[in-house]
């Protein structure tokens, strides 16, 4: 039979193993000592931007007294920014000109010479420049999500992200047209809007552009909703769009170049109207990790303004 001494040695070894396992596990399994994630989805490479490509620098921040800025536009070199239940008018120097409290949660804002249009989920509220309410357009379905407004010479274009269509209204709130961007020859599938980001804008020449985020495309329409042209980004690097819903916001610089703002990998970039990539305005590292996408606008000087919901401020970028 087994030697008693052997048994004892065996037992002692086991006791040592038990103590070592418990003590080792207890000491090792601590925050900061655990191994890093083998399954990590490393988006770091995607966020890298060649410094050569960054053609803007951030010059100023306007800290907003707002929990979450939602939409922003610039008219006559005054910034109109909505958020919480407020509409604030700020000069391009960062001085608060006016504050209008809104009885609803605003999404986005658009301004023309006589009126301010603010969208809620399912309605458009019209104010004059003193903040007096003029009208409320409520003829939308309960399933609407009015994510973009653009005006041009008495026409008001409204983008409905939920119903995936664009409406054309008169200034007085008469609906004249709606279109889904579908073309007969099936060149494109119409608007594909997987999330709440669906923007449109009209440049200084009166061209209506609509973002088609599901196709990573920017599309040019006539005021009657006929597709005139489009471009999509074909690149998997910084020159193109990634994710499912980009560009989330866009605006025009004086001269017609486009500024796009993307979600997912947060970045702001400049494109020519033809779709040719010009450069980066704000690289992903400027934004908070897993942050929210910023609405963009530009002033007559060509400065780019981004309403950053995470930093609760308007960030100003100027061309280097």
């Amino acid at each position: 039979m087994m030697n008693k001494k052997g048994i004892y040695i065996f037992l002692i070894i086991l006791a040592v193993i038990i103590v070592a396992v418990i003590a080792g596990d207890f000491a090792r399994n601590r925050p900061g000592k655990r191994p890093s994630n083998p399954f990590e989805y490393n988006m770091g490479d995607l966020k890298k931007v060649d410094p050569e490509q960054i053609i803007y620098r951030e010059t100023r921040n306007f800290k907003l007294k707002m929990e979450e800025p939602a939409g922003m536009t610039i008219f006559n070199d005054q910034i109109y920014v909505t958020g919480d239940q407020l509409l604030q008018v700020i000069t391009t120097e960062g001085r608060l000109v006016r504050e209008i409290s809104l009885p609803f949660k605003p999404l986005t804002v658009e301004v023309n010479t006589s009126r301010i249009f603010v969208s809620a989920r399912e309605s458009i509220h019209v104010y004059d420049h003193d903040g007096n309410p003029l009208a409320e357009w409520t003829g939308f379905t309960g399933n609407s999500y009015l994510s973009g407004i653009a005006t041009y010479e008495g026409n008001v274009f409204i983008a409905d992200a939920a119903r995936r269509r664009v409406y054309r209204f008169t200034e007085d709130g008469e609906k004249e047209l709606e279109f889904e961007g579908k073309v007969s020859d099936d060149a494109l599938h119409g608007f594909i809007v997987p999330s709440g980001c669906f923007d449109l804008a009209i440049n200084e020449f009166g061209d209506l552009w609509v973002a088609n985020p599901g196709k990573h495309a920017l599309e040019n329409y006539t005021f009657n909703g006929i597709l005139r042209g489009y471009w999509t980004s074909q690149f998997s690097d910084v020159k193109g769009f990634t994710g499912c819903c980009n560009p989330a916001f866009f605006t025009f610089l004086p001269g017609g170049n486009m500024i796009t703002s993307e979600k997912g990998i947060l970045r702001i970039k400049e494109y020519k109207p033809s779709g040719e990539f010009v450069g980066v305005v704000a690289e992903p590292s400027r934004f908070m990790e897993d942050g929210k996408v910023s609405d963009v606008a530009s002033d007559s000087q060509g400065r780019v303004y981004a309403a950053d919901p995470d930093k609760k401020s308007i960030r100003v970028f100027e061309k280097i």
Partner: peptide
């Protein structure tokens, strides 16, 4: 594996103690 090692060690020990 720490759990397994611990369990096996105890069982082996349990043969004699």
């Amino acid at each position: 594996y720490t759990m397994i090692v611990l369990g096996v060690a105890f069982l082996l020990m349990g043969m004699f103690v």
